[in-house]
Nucleic acid binder design. Structure first.
Lengths: 356, 356
DNA sequence: GAGCCGTGGGAAAGCGCTTTCCAAGAGGTA
DNA sequence: TACCTCTTGGAAAGCGCTTTCCCACGGCTC
């Protein structure tokens, strides 16, 4: 029997036109229709038939079934992007860069936000694996939690064994392709910048210590200060949430307890916005006359804060783009690493320290 | 023949474990394994077998194949979200709300950004249809382009005929479920707020006229002014891009040509940030002493601008959440409409007008 | 004219799952 | 004991596509 359909099935939910129908309408075989419409192989189809199929598809308003294609091809046109928080401008910029590049390659981007909940990153990576995403970008910072890191590494290895590609933005370990942000160098740039303005009492408003990103930025600042013959007193470093409120509370705490500080490095711009508010409204300290503040990231609104925020610029959009491009290159033998530069942008929130 | 596999196929790319293998490992049939692991039906599986299947899945590190499920079930667990720009805090907040709600329902969100390119919205909607997304949220503003609107409506209808659900944030037409932002009311609130502070010469820095959102906000302001016995001189309204730079240039132009204005309504916060910069740096006009400025949206950084931005608060995250919830309710007979409120937040950028 | 090769069309076997339908066994009832 | 009803497991038909393999045909070369 050529067509043994007999079972009754619940009527399909909609008007879904299938390739088979397009083929029939065009009077060609399914194979030919597939080759015309999605042809990836090296096979060519005659001019005449090709035209017939195309107009049949047009007439029937055929829309291909991506899951079916994914199943048959065992690969898909979707890439995953895992971030901490889409509403955070840092990730927003990265996502924008990635999506722009994705568009050029006709890929769809599935974004998952962990809202900084530990464990969710792993869960989403599994979800993306289930979706048979062709690749995944891990945009959030790695952590110092060894157990979590190991489980994640295992999941990544599994994904790659299945033919998926993974790129991390920021360090996660040497086995994976990474777009390396200049966190360490940036931290150094900021510290050195304050130093050169004349600051000798420099403090840091830091984010959660378990974040690798935070650690690198902090180390960068510390190392720079060291090489300048100074150092960074642990008591001059205070830790808070990587949010505006965290920045505010932490800056207030830091300057209350260490009132002789004249320069403050805040480890991200969102925190810095809070810090500026705290110093001004809670403590009545004028920036930059009394204290200078340097942020990190150069998110879009940094220049609009008052005083405008001096900060370490990271090429966020480029990072997203670079990550996506890396995903598209065939996997190399050795993990690749694309280092991106940081640049110190001096604006209104920094000045020479007040005369003693 | 029980297992007529004979053709040779290229080796599968990876270690992909299939449900079949799990079933064999557990010594049960494929059907049983499916029922245990993804069981959606009303069928129950005995305690003993259930346990066997679960541990087999665990041991083999089974990861289900979402495309295959989507194909078999002809529905998927992904919802699409189409925005203008992920890096724009307005959309970032909406996306965050939607993703938070999506997480509760174990849905994955596929985000597409049109970067305000006309036509791309349609293209992405088709793409999402191809992915067999269960539903799509159209978060960007509708336009006055009748042809584009019609084609989009057609595509939406097709998608719904196929069993998909569509929700728009902001008006798009009466046939579709919508989460209605209080654009008109918000425009009124802002205008009235300036009026009550004593402003009688009020201008508007507007966005692209073809955006429905812009039009509604503007109409709201105009209507309010009318009912106050005043009116809005078209010459007091200037149009620019919906970006920071657009806001800056437009505000400068407006106040250069209409120097007697004392109150300015800027139709979104991103533009308002630019306007503040333009008034201060390009024109040397003090806000709020010389001109008062009111923005729109209340994006997270609004309070951090200096002066802090008075603005019309829209519940962005709630809108994203509401949209997602609407998608999950079964389609109703009549299109639903969830109206959201606006609230005027007075901060530092507004004050009484200068004495003449 | 026999033998080859290159082209291009079609049949059909999968891809990994869901779900229907059938069957077998358990427990009740008359 | 015969007859039913329930429950639960399994066989197998699809879901809509891709791709391999086969075949027919036309144009070459000796």
């Amino acid at each position: 029997m050529a067509n043994p359909r007999s079972r009754t099935r619940p009527a399909r939910t909609g008007s879904g036109v299938t390739l088979q129908q397009v083929a029939e309408h065009a009077g060609v075989s399914l194979a030919t229709a597939s080759r015309v419409l999605h042809g990836s192989g090296t096979r060519t189809v005659g001019e005449e038939l090709r035209r017939r199929v195309e107009s049949a598809a047009e007439e029937l308003r055929y829309i291909s079934n991506a899951p079916a294609q994914a199943l048959a091809r065992s690969t898909s046109a979707v890439v995953g992007l895992i971030v901490h928080d889409v509403a955070d401008p840092y990730f927003g910029a990265i996502a924008a860069g990635a999506m722009r590049a994705a568009r050029e390659h006709r890929l769809m981007v599935m974004i998952a936000a962990t809202f900084r909940e530990p464990g969710l990153e792993l869960e989403y990576l599994r979800g993306l694996r289930a979706q048979r995403a062709r690749a995944v970008i891990l945009a959030g910072s790695g952590t110092t939690d060894a157990a979590a890191t190991a489980r994640l590494a295992e999941e990544i290895a599994g994904f790659e064994a299945d033919g998926g590609r993974v790129v991390c933005i920021g360090e996660r370990g040497p086995e994976v392709d990474t777009v390396a942000m200049a966190n360490h160098a940036g931290g150094g740039l900021a510290a050195r910048g304050l130093w050169e303005l004349g600051h000798r009492r420099i403090g840091v408003v830091s984010g959660p210590e378990e974040l690798l990103t935070v650690r690198q930025r902090l180390d960068g600042a510390r190392d720079a200060l060291h090489s300048l013959g100074a150092g960074l007193d642990p008591a001059d470093v205070r830790t808070g949430d990587f949010t505006r409120e965290g920045g505010r509370a932490t800056a207030v705490r830091l300057l209350t307890e260490r009132p002789d500080l004249t320069g403050v490095l805040v480890l991200n711009d969102v925190m810095a916005a809070g810090a500026l508010a705290g110093l001004r409204d809670d403590l009545g300290l004028s920036v930059p006359d009394r204290v200078s503040v340097v942020g990190f990231d150069d998110v879009p609104f940094a220049a609009d804060l008052r005083p405008s925020l001096s900060t370490v610029r990271l090429p966020l959009e480029s990072a997203g783009e670079a990550a996506l491009r890396l995903l598209l290159d065939p996997a190399a033998d050795a993990p690749r690493r694309i280092p991106l530069d940081a640049e110190l942008i001096l604006r209104g929130s920094t000045a020479a320290p007040p005369r003693a």
